[in-house]
Design a protein around this nucleic acid. Sequence first.
DNA 1: TTTTATTTGTCCGTATGTATA
DNA 2: TTATACATACGGACAAATAAA
Lengths: 233, 233
Amino acid sequence: MALWTAIAETLRAEIAAGLYPPGARLPTEAALSDRFGVNRHTIRHALKSLAEGDIVHARRGAGVFVTARPAVYPLGRRVRFHRNIAADGRSPSRRITRVETRPASEAEAGALRLDGAAEVHVVEGTSLADGQPLAAFQSVFPAGRFAGLPAAIRARGSISAALSDCGLTDYTRAETRLTAQLAPPVLALALQVAERAAVLRSVAVNVDADGVPVEYGTTWFAGERVTLTVSPD
Amino acid sequence: MALWTAIAETLRAEIAAGLYPPGARLPTEAALSDRFGVNRHTIRHALKSLAEGDIVHARRGAGVFVTARPAVYPLGRRVRFHRNIAADGRSPSRRITRVETRPASEAEAGALRLDGAAEVHVVEGTSLADGQPLAAFQSVFPAGRFAGLPAAIRARGSISAALSDCGLTDYTRAETRLTAQLAPPVLALALQVAERAAVLRSVAVNVDADGVPVEYGTTWFAGERVTLTVSPD
DNA sequence: TTTTATTTGTCCGTATGTATA
DNA sequence: TTATACATACGGACAAATAAA
C-alpha cells in the first residue's frame, strides 16, 4: 500500500469521524508532513486524491477545506429548486450574477426555434444550499417574447416570479442531456470546488403548455455533492 | 499559464486532430520530456490531467493510451442498449462476467418489495461499443419469480432473451438515481479507465406492465465517454 | 492602502520500486 | 531474464494567492 494512500485514508476517516467538520480547514501541508513524517509532496498527493473525490478543496494562500455533504435533486418534468432543497431539510437560496441581452447563438436559436437574428436574455447565477454552492446555471430566454424579463428579474430577484410577471405561469422540461465533465477554472470558482473536480452538466429545454420552447438552460451541478433522480410523472 | 497546462492542451489538440487515434500509445514520458524540454514530472502532471478527463489512460509498464470517443445514450422508459449503440453507428456487444443466486440485501429487498429472507439472482457484466467498455452493470432479479433465469442466461447469452424465456416480455424504468463518482479500482479495471476517473452511476428500478418491480440495476457509465439524454415519452 | 508572513501551486532533480513486454 | 516504462518518494526552489498586520 502506497504511503500517500494510507495518509489519504487516515484523513478521510478523520473527516468522516467529524474531527474536521464540513467547512473546517485542515492543518497545513507543512504541519501534516511533520505529523506523518513524510515529504510535503507525499502529503500533497494524498490531499489531491481527497480533492478529486470532493472530500476537500484547496485554496491557494488560504488552506485546504472540508467540503459539505451531498444533496438529492429530483429531475422531473418541473424543476423547483427551492422546494427540492427545502424538502431535504436545507436552506435554499439563489444568487443571480448576471443578466444581459444579446443575439442568440446558433445552438440557442436552434433549441428555442428562433430565427438567426433574434435576441435572447441571458441569466447566470448559482444555487446554494445552506450557503454552499450546489449548482451554477445559465438560462437563455427569447427576448422577443419576454421583453420585460431583465427588469422583472432585477425587481423581483427571482426568475420564476419574473417569468410569472411576463405572463408565463407554468413550463415543463422537454429534454435533458447529462454529461460528466471536469470543472473549468471559472466554474470551479463559482461552485467553490477544486479545479478539475467532476461536475454533472445538464442541458435542458423547457417548453410552455403549448409545447413552445421558452428556456434553454444549462446547469452545472457540483460533482458528488448532488444526486439527480429521474422518474416519469 | 502553467507549463503543464500548455503541454496538456497541445497533446489534447494532437489527439483531437487524430495524430494519436483512439487506442494508440502516446510517446513515453521520457520522449515527451525531451520533446517539450521539461522535466518528466511536468509531463506526468499534464498526462494526469488528460487521464482525469478520460482522454488517455496509463498502464504501468506498458504506456499511456488514447481513450475512445464519447457516445450518446438515451435514458428513456425502456433501455435498449444494443439499439442505442447501433443507432450511434457503433458495434454493440455485452459480456456477462458473473451469474449467481444469493439472499437479497436490505436495499435490494426494499427496491424489489421482497421480504427479508427472499433470494435474488445477480448478473454482472460490461457493455461494449466497438470492443471498448462503455458501462459496467449489476442487475438483481427476484429469484422466486424468475426461477430459471440463470440457466436461461447461460443458454441464451442475453439477459432480455432470458427474461423473455421466463415470461417477462416488457418492462419499463420506474426511477433512476444519478451520481457522479470516482471509479473504485475494480470498476476502473472493468471499464478500462484510469483509477480515480469520473464515472456516472445510475441506479434504476424496472417494473413490469402491472407496476411490480422486476429488476434492481446499477450501471456505471465510463465518465465522459457517455452522454445520457433524458426525455419524457 | 501597503506590507509582510503564510500557504498552496508549479517546476526541477534524483533515487528506488514494480509491473509489463 | 532483461530492459523498459510507469509509480512512488524525497529534496529543494520559487511563484502566486491569501490573509493578517
